[in-house]
């Protein structure tokens, strides 16, 4: 096998790069799990923030977050 060989072939039972392919698969699975977890955390954070906004009487629609609160120049 040469370095340019298809990496997907490494799933073969006796392939010399099988270990590396399995490591990658495990790492990608962990990454996917962390991503899902982060989605959940961000979602909870966002909804908590929206509840806070609502308690202040601010709109909870998709108004861009980085805006100053209502501002008046006197």
């Amino acid at each position: 096998m040469e370095a340019g060989t298809r990496f997907s072939d490494a799933w073969g039972r006796n392939h010399p790069l099988r270990r590396l392919a399995m490591r990658d698969a495990i790492a990608l699975s962990i990454l996917a799990a962390i991503t899902l977890l982060m989605f959940a955390v961000a979602g909870l954070y966002y909804s908590a923030y929206n509840r806070y906004r609502a308690s202040l009487g601010l709109p909870t629609d998709n108004t861009p977050v980085i805006t100053l609160p209502t501002m008046r120049h006197h």
Partner: peptide, 11 residues
């Protein structure tokens, strides 16, 4: 890091 080019491509 001496690995097949195809691995780096898919990564």
């Amino acid at each position: 890091f001496q690995q097949p080019v195809s691995r780096e491509r898919y990564l």
